[in-house]
């Protein structure tokens, strides 16, 4: 039995338990927060964030994340070219880390969210436990993708030695930040309870 089945829901803000009518917008009489059984438009909002993230993922990988200007010679690197560079220079463990954190994780995260959304929309009853665990992993891992952005931001701020070496963040960095943030939003907006709704 779910709280929803007896028309009950607690306020997100103050925790007050309320009777909710089946339809219509309601709010908490005590604190004034909007009241819902489930996150409002969870699937649609998640889809919106997810789609935006997927769109941003393209420039994030095609445009240079940072440009190193050294002795008047500028070298721009995308995420993948950086990975290839590291791999070719023998730093394959580092290459692997960058690849996993910056390419694979956002991609898998988006795939996972798509899978969750579609499965919920199709009211699938299969592997509800696994799906819930998947959701928890997605939510947990999401913020770690920001490491790349922190590195670029730090380097851009620190390495600024004029003609000898300057590091400038590229368009790709902004796009990549957008991907990370948008996927975090998408994950937050997804209501895992929907997995268990019939």
């Amino acid at each position: 039995m779910r709280a929803r089945d007896v028309g009950l829901a607690s306020c997100h803000s103050c925790g007050l338990l309320l009777h909710l009518p089946g339809a219509g917008h309601t709010h908490c009489p005590r604190c004034g927060s909007a009241m819902h059984f489930r996150k409002v438009n969870s699937i649609s909002t998640t889809w919106a964030f997810l789609l935006a993230a997927m769109i941003a993922y393209v420039p994030a990988n095609l445009y240079p994340v940072m440009t190193v200007v050294s002795f008047g010679k500028a070298q721009s690197d995308t995420i993948m070219s950086g990975v290839i560079y590291l791999f070719l220079h023998g730093d394959w463990p580092l290459a692997l880390i960058v690849f996993v954190a910056s390419v694979l994780v956002p991609l898998l995260k988006m795939c996972a969210l798509v899978y969750l959304l579609i499965s919920v929309q199709r009211k699938s009853h299969l592997r509800k436990h696994q799906r819930t665990r998947l959701y928890r992993i997605v939510e947990l891992v999401g913020r770690w993708s920001m490491v790349d952005i922190f590195v670029v931001a730090l380097l851009a701020a620190l390495v600024n030695v004029g003609a000898i070496a300057t590091i400038e963040p590229g368009v790709g960095a902004i796009a990549f930040t957008s991907v990370v943030i948008l996927t975090i939003f998408a994950a937050t907006n997804f209501d895992p309870r929907l997995i268990w709704d019939r």
Partner: peptide, 15 residues
């Protein structure tokens, strides 16, 4: 207690 019913706000979801 019952939640207070708001007036329905219909529109394009901003998200």
């Amino acid at each position: 207690p019952d939640a207070i019913v708001d007036e329905a706000v219909k529109g394009f979801p901003v998200v």
